[in-house]
């Protein structure tokens, strides 16, 4: 049973922001994460502010500079099937296609996928954990097979999104609107690690709305891909994943990013792998060094050291594959 709340469907962004005058007033986009959280009483609610009546939050369009503007309400299915995204930014189309299930991709939005709440079973369950204002992370000494191996600090969630690593890899930015006016934030800085603030996942304030995602024009020689390993072949979160967006000059890696899913409380940029491959041809020696580097700083918990060989293997396989494109 869902708790009681009132429901509004504003026609404009300004009107929507005015409805967000209390932290208990919740933004509703696709609803696939929100309704689950409300049903499981993860947080409270007074009013649902539906964004579905705001036309400017929809659509995928090319920008004058040759980049892409994606409205926050674009569904994961639209992202996965968009010919523009598939041809110019395959890593993002693949990330969206690998997320959740067909029904959830039909409903869930890109904006919502970036703003979704952690899937830690203690956080979602009846545990008053650190992230919910309690004083204990139950995963630290409890069942932690699906928790982080990098970037944990007092809280050990993994970030559940498959599109966020792709967007960080591509150097995307998000536009945010609130009572204080609009602002632009690189996706890389949108997520808040527990080392910075345990009580939030993103920089978004309760009275702000993520309105669009902006992709820069694809740089020369860009090749990109997303690989996700999960226990089931569908509708499951990443045990380990890697988003690659690399710029090649000839056979040499001239730049780009390597971003992990299933590894850390935020989409995790593997600077260690990037350092190994930058300026190199992706030969067997470089690839094997990169596979070691990806877990160099990992600190697995009692039940998740199986993730180390997974990450080594997917980095090896994905770098080998992208070298041959």
């Amino acid at each position: 049973m869902l708790p009681n709340f009132s429901y509004v469907r504003p026609k404009s962004l300004d009107e929507a922001v005015r409805h967000l005058d209390s932290p208990e007033n919740r933004i509703h986009a696709g609803g696939t994460d929100l309704l689950g959280c409300l049903r499981e009483r993860v947080f409270g609610v007074a009013k649902i502010v539906s964004l579905s009546g705001i036309q400017e939050l929809k659509g995928i369009t090319e920008t004058a500079e040759g980049g892409l503007r994606i409205g926050a309400l674009a569904t994961l299915r639209e992202i996965a099937e968009s010919p523009l995204i598939r041809s110019k930014y395959p890593v993002l189309a693949q990330g969206a296609a690998e997320a959740a299930s067909p029904q959830l991709r039909n409903q869930g939005t890109l904006g919502g996928n970036l703003c979704q709440k952690p899937r830690c079973w203690y956080y979602r369950g009846d545990f008053h954990c650190l992230r919910k204002g309690g004083d204990l992370c139950y995963a630290m000494v409890g069942e932690n097979a699906f928790h982080c191996i990098l970037g944990g600090d007092a809280c050990y969630i993994v970030h559940p999104s498959d599109t966020a690593p792709a967007l960080v890899a591509l150097g995307a930015t998000v536009r945010i609107t609130g009572a204080g006016g609009p602002r632009t934030v690189p996706v890389e800085e949108f997520f808040v690690p527990p080392t910075q603030d345990l009580t939030r996942e993103t920089v978004l304030e309760h009275n702000e709305i993520l309105t669009e995602i902006l992709l820069p024009p694809p740089p020369q020689g860009l090749r990109s891909s997303y690989r996700k390993v999960r226990a089931r072949r569908s509708w499951d979160f990443a045990l380990a994943g890697v988003a690659l967006a690399l710029q090649f000059r000839g056979e040499e890696v001239a730049g780009g990013r390597v971003v992990l899913s299933g590894a850390a409380p935020i989409p995790w940029r593997s600077v260690e792998v990037e350092e190994v491959i930058l300026g190199k041809r992706l030969d067997a020696e470089t690839i094997s060094a990169a596979a070691e580097a990806v877990v160099k700083n990992a600190e697995p918990l009692a039940q998740n050291d199986y993730k180390l060989p997974l990450f080594r293997a997917i980095v090896e396989e994905e770098l080998s594959a992208i070298a041959k494109v």
Partner: peptide
């Protein structure tokens, strides 16, 4: 025209 999980759709939607 598209399949959705109706448990995650508010009737008002």
């Amino acid at each position: 025209g598209i399949p959705v999980n109706s448990c995650l759709v508010l009737a008002m939607q």
